[in-house]
């Protein structure tokens, strides 16, 4: 583990390229990101502050800040940054690092459970199947959740196993739920 900046460049660099992540260093704290932020007007998220904290290596403070998760990834600041800082992608990578170190809420981890069970973050249920019929569609779309496509669903599960996503959210393959989770989503 290096400094937070080094980790952002290393982990994010593998996907976006290191140069993309290194734009963080160009931040001059002008605040244009925060000025146009739809979250900032409603929540404690201050994108400018987040980037200063990242450059000051305040790792634990950032990872424990609830507002880290109040960015909707709208890319407004990404388009407006006068220094070309790749803001939204940097925020996503900071979140990736936070999640890897166990800072991930139960509702966020549950989205992974739905995908591991059905292949969908928002699965279909019997009520929605009726809605499909009401507009003249097949009751179930031919996606990974369709009983005919078990093999395809297994491919998605294989990806999650290969990248250790299942371990990251503490997924229990026996119960097909988060480990220690009781019915109804209560821990």
């Amino acid at each position: 583990m290096g400094t937070l900046y080094e980790d952002i460049v290393a982990y994010g660099g593998e996907v976006f390229g290191e140069e993309h992540m290194e734009t963080l260093r160009e931040c001059v704290q002008c605040g244009k990101c925060t000025g146009g932020c739809p979250s900032g007007r409603n929540t404690a998220l201050r994108t400018r502050k987040l980037f200063q904290m990242a450059l000051l290596d305040l790792r634990e403070e950032i990872f424990n800040a609830p507002e880290l998760w109040f960015c909707s990834t709208c890319f407004t600041c990404y388009e407006r940054c006068p220094k070309g800082v790749k803001t939204t992608d940097i925020i996503r990578i900071i979140r990736n690092l936070a999640a890897k170190e166990g800072h991930m809420s139960v509702p966020h981890r549950m989205i992974g459970v739905y995908v591991l069970k059905t292949g969908h973050a928002v699965p279909i249920g019997p009520d929605q199947m009726k809605l499909r019929e009401a507009v003249g569609l097949e009751s179930q779309p031919p996606t990974t959740q369709h009983p005919k496509n078990k093999e395809q669903l297994e491919q998605v599960r294989t990806i999650f196993r290969t990248t250790n996503y299942d371990a990251m959210i503490d997924f229990d393959w026996e119960t097909m739920n988060l480990r220690g989770m009781k019915k109804g989503g209560k821990k």
Binding site: G12, T73, R92, R95, A99, V122
Partner: peptide, 28 residues
Amino acid sequence: EMVGASCCPAPGVFGSFDMHTWLPVAAR
């Protein structure tokens, strides 16, 4: 229809949790 397609997976959600999982699911 794309038979056997899954969640895209959501860019701001799975992209925020792990880009390295998000990408192969999208590529699939």
